[in-house]
Design a protein around this nucleic acid. Structure first.
Lengths: 146, 146
DNA sequence: GGTTGATCGTTGGCGCGGCCAACAAGTGGC
DNA sequence: GCCACTTGTTGGCCGCGCCAACGATCAACC
């Protein structure tokens, strides 16, 4: 990037700072995930599946903050690689139940490690106390907008 | 968005939190700017121009963190609306010198207000002290990656 | 029991943002 | 004069966050 001298007006603007740091974070994570042939949506769905068990696609989207239409594409990709199984819900024929396979669980474990390393790299400059502060503040802002 | 119950794994991950809050911020800013027919790149360039005076496109891109090719498009849009003037640099015939017009300055002032309101809305949940903390932490992370 | 309104999966599309490759024109150092 | 580099421009790619529309299905109500 080599931002030679960013305008002071931007450096002091919270939304700008958020976008910049989020971009850095995204690049770190995307690089790690990319090496495993994954994207952020993949992780989001897999993690949601492990935490809540078999879930319909709509519900899956609501919890990871992913649009219904994007869930379709992501489930396609994940099921093609055997990380996930899509089967019709016998109790509600509109729905598909998405289930995490063993391979998917293993893949998720792998992505967890990759993600952890990315966090480490991202926050390397901050002592533990400051990291917790940052997480706290972000959660607070986020909670207020929902 | 209505994120019913986001997975704990995500809610504790700094990069995820950053992306979510940045998304909220982006939406707030984009809504405000959109009402003025502007995008973030517009503000970035205008602000840079006011702070550093007439600048070549390449330099302009380096300071706002905008790609050369995107600078071209943005300068096109800004010059069509009379906010900016693009003229060849007599001292270096490869370069264009981009200059902020009076209309551009006025537009920038306007966008400044819009942006300020967006920051206010974004951080409404945080007391002043926490806002400063947040800005400090983000700057620290950002500085480490450059 | 049939009608109505909502939900679900799917397809297709849009715009922004961050990139990258290639090219012609021009510059500066050696 | 040659070479490496910079600059502006064009064109393209992908991820992400959206939105509209459609057929199928479900649930509630009368």
């Amino acid at each position: 990037m080599e931002t030679r001298g960013a305008p002071a007006r931007l450096r002091g603007t919270p939304s700008w700072l958020l976008n910049q740091t989020a971009t850095v974070a995204q690049r770190l994570v995307a690089d790690g995930f990319g090496a495993e042939g994954a994207r952020r949506y993949h992780y989001s769905l897999l993690a949601t599946l492990e935490e809540f068990g078999p879930t319909s696609q709509a519900e899956l989207g609501r919890r990871g903050g992913v649009d219904r239409s994007d869930v379709v594409a992501t489930v396609n990709e994940l099921s093609e690689r055997g990380f996930v199984e899509r089967s019709p819900d016998p109790g509600d024929r509109r729905r598909n139940v998405v289930t995490l396979t063993e391979a998917g669980t293993a893949h998720l474990r792998h992505l967890d490690e990759v993600l952890a390393r990315a966090q480490e790299a991202l926050l390397a400059a901050l002592p533990r106390k400051d990291r917790e502060q940052l997480v706290r503040l972000l959660n607070q802002v986020l909670e207020h907008h929902s």
